[in-house]
Amino acid sequence: MSSNFVINARNLTLSYGDKEIIRDASFSVKKGEFVFITGPSGSGKSTLLKSLYGQIEPTEGSLIVGGLEMGGISNGKLQELRTHLGIIFQDYKLINEWTVKKNVVLPLMIAGYSIDVQETQAERLLKHVRLSEHKERYPLELSGGEQQRVGVARALAKNPFLILADEPTGNLDEYSSNVIWDLMENACEQLKTTVLVVTHKIPSIFSNPYRHFIIESKGVYEVR
C-alpha cells in the first residue's frame, strides 16, 4: 500500500442490476482517520460498505481499497485483502457453534497462524474487550452487547489496516453502545487503524476528531 489513501473512490457508481444505488461518488480516506457515513434508511450506506470489502463490484468508476482496484479484482486478491480488514456487523455474524475464543481467532485461523499465536492473541483480545471469563462460552449464551464485543475483538484480531463497521450499535442499549464506540476509538487512536462506520446517527459521546460523509440522492458528500 504505497499511497497515503486507504480508500480512494473516483466517480464511483454502484448498482443492483439496473437499479443505481450510488452514482458518481468521489471521496477518499487517509490512514488513521475515523469516518462516519450516515444517511436515511435505504440510501445505500450498507451497499457502499459492501463495495469496500468486495461483496459488490463497482458498476462504473474506480474504487481503490488498500491499494487494490476493486473493479474486476481476482478471487485470490480479494481473499488476501479481506484478511487485512476487520469487519463488524449489526447482527454480529458470529459462528454460533464455535466458542467465543474460536470466533475471535477466526481471522488468524484463516491466515494460518499457529495454535500458540491464536491462543495468545485470543487471551489478549478477550482481556481488551473484557470478556476473558466468557472465552469458553458460546455466542448465544451472551447478551447482545457482549456478542458485539466479541465481534470487535474478532475485527481487531489481525491488526487490520481498515475496520469497516455496519451499524455496529444498531441492536444495542446505550451502555453497550458506548463500550463499542470506546473500543473503536481506541483502535483508531492507539493502533492508527482507519475506521469507517456506517450508522444512522453519530454518537454524542464521541470525543475524537472524525470525518463525516452523508449519502443523499445517490451521492456521497462530506459534511465535516
Binding site: N96, L106, I110
Partner: peptide, 16 residues
C-alpha cells in the same frame, strides 16, 4: 451457510 459466509467475508479460501 452462515458459517461459510462469515468465513468468506474474512477471506477464507473456498477449500477452507
Amino acid at each position: 451457510r452462515e458459517r461459510m459466509q462469515v468465513m468468506e467475508i474474512f477471506g477464507a479460501s473456498l477449500m477452507l
